[in-house]
Write a protein that binds this DNA or RNA. Structure first.
Length: 722
DNA sequence: TGCCGGCCGATTTTT
DNA sequence: TCGGCCGGCA
């Protein structure tokens, strides 16, 4: 071995603990890395990949699969930073599958340029399938979607479903499922679940291909293995069947995607599947304080279906996990916003702060409160951007250019911008196309006789010509293609005209072009198809930026894999966290507990769990019940901070404005001044007997606890702070 | 054909 | 609360 390489390896192993080192230097055979939160998993995984590339195999023969694009990017960067030639395939499961299906489209029986349907498209397609099956009114698209998704995640095809269907409801469903598949076929479209299932089925069936891929990827690494579903599991197994070099990493306690078919058993039975497996347990936590870890550990201990593990840390105790109760959800939001605002004023970096919640709709009150306090934030909602009308419009044009049989996209743009093609004409076109057994676009661009369309024929012709002229975009790199279509489709004119004062749509379109440019820079060889695929597979977390002085808001699901100095989890209420639906038969409190565990273990130094006693959901304010999870946290690691008082008329301050006869005026985040320590901020309040104690963090960095009644503390209003 | 207003219905989490 | 859809009107 070169001394240079040896030095690099030594440097790489430097500072790793025993189990970490074992995982990094492991080469042959199956490896299971059970990694508790904050145990340096990413570090281990990237170092192992680099180590493999240096000692054992060419980088391009390593395949690493993650769950989000963000994780992919991070992993690539970190491997690069280790000075190992890149060339490793790092990809999300869905992107890897999409790519495989395009490369081997023929063998998979697919069109190379297939469209990936998003949720809305899928629902539209299902709506049509339901109508075609003569069952409209009896089935909702969402209802059928749920069952189809579940079926696909179990790799049950429409035919297979048919074989086992007996109840009348099932027989109805099979009709829909089959028709849905026909529509997908006709429009050369795949849904998210197809990407995984088709690859799993392909590898199962096509031995030659399986062998080829297994040969290519001598080492396969699957991250977040606890969240794999049946097709993903199958793919992992099939790709490594002969060489056995499968490295699975994950933590059963962080399995939070059961609802989309993830099977926690996949990781729990890894050792049974692979008797020769090496198992490494990473249990030392480098992220959180002792109190946070103790609390999280106590919570997760409430689960029965788990692998016992011992989390430990050498970190200091830190401050206790705060539990805060408020009267209204608005109080919760306001207190939070005030506290954060004070922290930022006091010099904290906003990007170290995250607010986590169970459901997206909880973000709204928080956003409003943050806006009021002038706190800048970012919200992990990448998907939302791509759901905007103007964005979907352009993407629909591109989709039609790339995949001319993409009917959903075509119907979206046929009269956008308005060009006088109404529903009657559209219906005639759809019927005519079906009768002639061609796609609508073929009908338009062929020599078909359009006279039955009457006056509309001319307009339809113009549309067909527009599409032909837009085909020039296909020759351009993604950002230019995008700009070309925006400008020549009439969309820019349409949106520019629409909002002269508030031209947000134009801003979004421009932002989309920027995003495409960034993408093109990262992947210079990428085609328009690649970019469309990328756009179809963005996840919420992908849009979270690392720097920028912004507080981050996101769902607990999106927070997986991230860490922050300060974490707030809001809405700890029974039915919300743990989430439960009224009609829910399959509520899984263990998964909810894991979700809460994931959230808590994101925090490095400060963790606050809060709830409101009244919360409005879907327009109705209801009294809530405290989350049972709160009662599972050990007293030793937790403090119950003062709750926002009931709404009562405010008492006036004492004449000298100093001692609070009304303790209610003191809340978390209150700014204070002390004669010797200077400016500080209330970090916690504890009510014991007759006294109220406040913990104050001073600007100097020192931290002191005072009995409020005796302390020489003066309340400072925000306006007083320069 | 296109726009507007009202009503109904849904609603976890995400690739 | 909000957004999608439908029906009526210009």
């Amino acid at each position: 071995m070169h001394t240079g390489v040896k030095n690099t390896i030594d440097r790489m192993l430097d500072g790793l603990n025993e189990p970490q080192r074992a995982a990094v230097t492991h080469t042959e055979g199956p490896l299971l890395i059970l990694a508790g939160p904050g145990s340096g998993k990413t570090r281990v995984v990237t170092h192992r990949a680099a180590h493999l590339a240096l000692t054992t195999v060419e980088p391009w023969r390593i395949l690493a699969i993650t769950f989000t694009n963000k994780a992919t990017r991070e992993m690539r960067e970190r491997v690069d930073a280790l000075g190992v030639a890149s060339g490793m395939t790092v990809s999300t499961f869905h992107a890897f599958c999409a790519r495989t299906l395009r490369i081997f489209a023929n063998r998979a029986g697919l069109q190379r340029n297939f469209t990936i349907l998003d949720r809305d498209d899928r629902r539209k397609m299902l709506k049509k399938a339901i109508t075609d099956a003569g069952l409209s009114g009896h089935w909702t698209p969402a209802g059928a979607e749920r069952i189809i998704s579940d079926a696909k995640n179990e790799m049950i095809s429409a035919e297979a479903y048919d074989r086992n269907a007996s109840e009348w409801r099932e027989l109805q469903f099979v009709k829909i499922y089959k028709q849905y598949e026909v529509l997908l076929q006709q429009t050369a479209s795949l849904d998210f679940d197809d990407l995984l299932m088709k690859v799993a089925l392909l590898l199962e069936k096509d031995t030659a291909l399986r062998n080829e891929l297994e040969d290519q990827y001598a080492y396969v690494l699957i991250d977040e293995y606890q969240d794999t579903n049946a097709p993903q599991y199958k793919i992992a197994e099939l790709l490594t069947r002969d060489h056995g070099n499968l490295c699975a990493t994950g933590d059963p306690d962080q399995s939070i995607y059961g609802w989309r078919g993830a099977n926690i058993e996949n990781i729990l039975r890894f050792e049974d599947d692979h008797p020769a497996a090496t198992v490494v347990r990473l249990e030392q936590n480098y992220r959180s304080t002792q109190h946070i870890l103790t609390a999280a550990d106590a919570l997760i201990a409430g689960n029965i279906n788990r692998k016992e593990k011992t989390l430990w840390t050498e970190n200091d105790d830190g401050s206790r996990v705060r539990i805060v109760e408020h009267e209204l959800a608005d109080d919760e939001a306001n207190a939070l916003a005030r506290e954060i605002r004070a922290q930022i004023t006091g010099g904290f970096d906003a990007s170290d702060i995250a607010i986590l919640y169970r459901i997206n709709s909880l973000s709204r009150v928080i956003e409003e409160a943050l806006l009021r306090e002038g706190v800048r934030y970012q919200i992990a909602r990448g998907v939302e951007f791509y759901n905007r009308k103007e964005i979907k419009d352009v993407l629909a044009y591109l989709r039609v250019l790339v995949n001319p049989v993409d009917e959903i996209a075509l119907l979206r743009i046929i009269n956008t911008p308005a060009r006088g093609i109404g529903s009657t004409t559209i219906q005639r076109l759809v019927d005519a196309a079906r009768q002639a057994n061609v796609s609508i676009l073929e009908l338009l661009q062929g020599n078909s006789d359009l006279t039955p369309l009457g006056r509309s024929a001319g307009k339809v012709k113009i549309f067909a010509e527009l599409l032909t002229s837009l085909q020039a975009a296909l020759e351009l790199p993604p950002p230019e293609a995008l700009a070309y279509v925006i400008n020549h489709s009439g969309l820019r004119a349409m949106y520019a005209h629409e909002g002269e004062i508030d031209n947000e749509p134009i801003g979004n379109l421009d932002e989309l072009v920027s995003a495409a440019s960034a993408f093109a820079q990262e992947r210079p060889d990428a085609s328009l198809v690649d970019w469309l695929e990328h756009a179809a597979l963005v996840s919420d977390v992908d849009c979270v930026v690392a720097e920028g002085g912004l507080v981050t808001l996101m769902t607990l699901h999106a927070a997986k894999g991230l860490e922050f100095e300060t974490v707030y989890i809001i809405g700890l209420e029974d039915g919300l966290l743990p989430f439960r639906r009224a009609d829910d038969v399959e509520a899984d409190d263990e998964e909810e507990r894991r979700l809460c565990f994931v959230g808590m273990t994101r925090a490095k130094r400060r963790l606050t769990l809060s709830r409101a006693r009244y919360r409005m959901l879907r327009g109705i304010t209801e009294r809530t019940v405290r989350s049972p999870f709160l009662d599972e946290l050990p007293d030793s690691a937790v403090e119950c901070a003062a709750r926002t008082p009931k709404r009562t008329p405010r008492k006036s301050k004492t004449p000298d404005g100093r001692l609070p006869d009304d303790i209610a005026e003191w809340t978390l985040g209150t700014l204070v001044e002390h004669p010797t320590d200077g400016l500080g901020q209330v970090m916690s309040m504890t009510r014991g007997g007759k006294r109220t104690f406040v913990e104050v963090l001073f600007k100097t960095g020192s931290r002191k606890t005072f009995a409020l009644e005796f302390a020489d503390l003066r309340r400072v209003d925000f306006d007083e702070v320069g």
